[in-house]
Design a binder for these strands. Structure first.
Lengths: 154, 154
DNA sequence: GATTAATGGTTGAAACTTCAACGTCATGGG
DNA sequence: CCCATGACGTTGAAGTTTCAACCATTAATC
């Protein structure tokens, strides 16, 4: 009983297309960011979350959960970004264990400059490469995949 | 002229679902590998390529190109795997600059043990989460995305 | 066929991520 | 109230990846 231990030829082809396609896509987007002087994709994502949060501030642990990263990784990343003046830390008001990360004006400006670069990259290497229906199918499928993965780490 | 500088709300939702879904998926698969004592996904991929190659051997640069990784990264990864006895290096027959990477019997055994774990993870977190049509759409879309990215780095 | 350019692979350091251990504070049960 | 347990965030070291520089060899150009 249970699932077969193998993938059939077609499943294998699709799975590899996914893995390989993603790897190449990320490289392409990363290079595009770099060529245009934008921050790393992972730094960019962090800036986006903060910018959309009320007060442009978020707790470290919420940031970590949102971005699906370890707390430690967020700590180190925030260290680096803070030293560039994009971020600041401040103690949490009610929970004295907590630390809040605040986007500075400089950080917001960095985001404003980076956004068009980022969007151009995503269009060029994903959105424009697919039909609208394909892009939708891709996004919806990944939403399901993400939800399934999320179901395990509460 | 040109593309709009922004993504509309729906495009943004789909794009984020992709990015976030992938991140969580990779974590889930990585954890699954680790819980079951299988090598890292990236080591696993390398083992697979070698095992499918005639002679179970490949040149470093071909490996790098195939896996969409830097030559340097492959060098370091092969160093580690070689020290575990899974791989060996040997000079290329005709091109004296070249180095070939050969899968050892121990490496092949490691692959044989890891394969069912890997397949179970891929099923559990991707294949089984989607309908066959969704999975196909995902794979085909990523094949196009990968091809587009590939078109830039020859 | 000699120079020049390009490829293959490595090296070591810098940058980034992971991992385990820790200190602080909050929360729940006795 | 007190203690046990767990959450929050950091730390420093270990592990991995990137980056720039490098040597050896091959391919191109004249």
């Amino acid at each position: 009983m249970g699932e077969p231990a193998w993938l059939d030829t077609d499943q294998q082809r699709l799975w590899r297309a996914y893995l390989d396609g993603h790897a190449r896509f990320l490289v392409a987007v990363g290079d595009y960011h770099e060529r245009h002087g934008a921050p790393t994709l992972s730094e960019y994502e962090l800036l986006v979350r903060l910018s959309e949060s009320p007060d442009r501030a978020m707790r470290m642990s919420v940031l970590a959960g949102d971005l699906a990263r370890s707390r430690s990784r967020v700590t180190h990343t925030v260290d680096r970004m803070e030293s560039r003046g994009w971020l600041e830390r401040r103690p949490h008001h009610t929970d004295r264990r907590g630390v809040e990360c605040v986007l500075t004006e400089a950080g917001f400006q960095a985001l404003v400059e980076a956004a068009p670069v980022h969007v151009a990259a995503v269009r060029r290497y994903m959105v424009d490469v697919l039909t609208p229906a394909e892009f939708r199918a891709l996004g919806e499928a990944m939403a399901k995949v993400g939800a399934a993965a999320k179901a395990e780490s509460p």
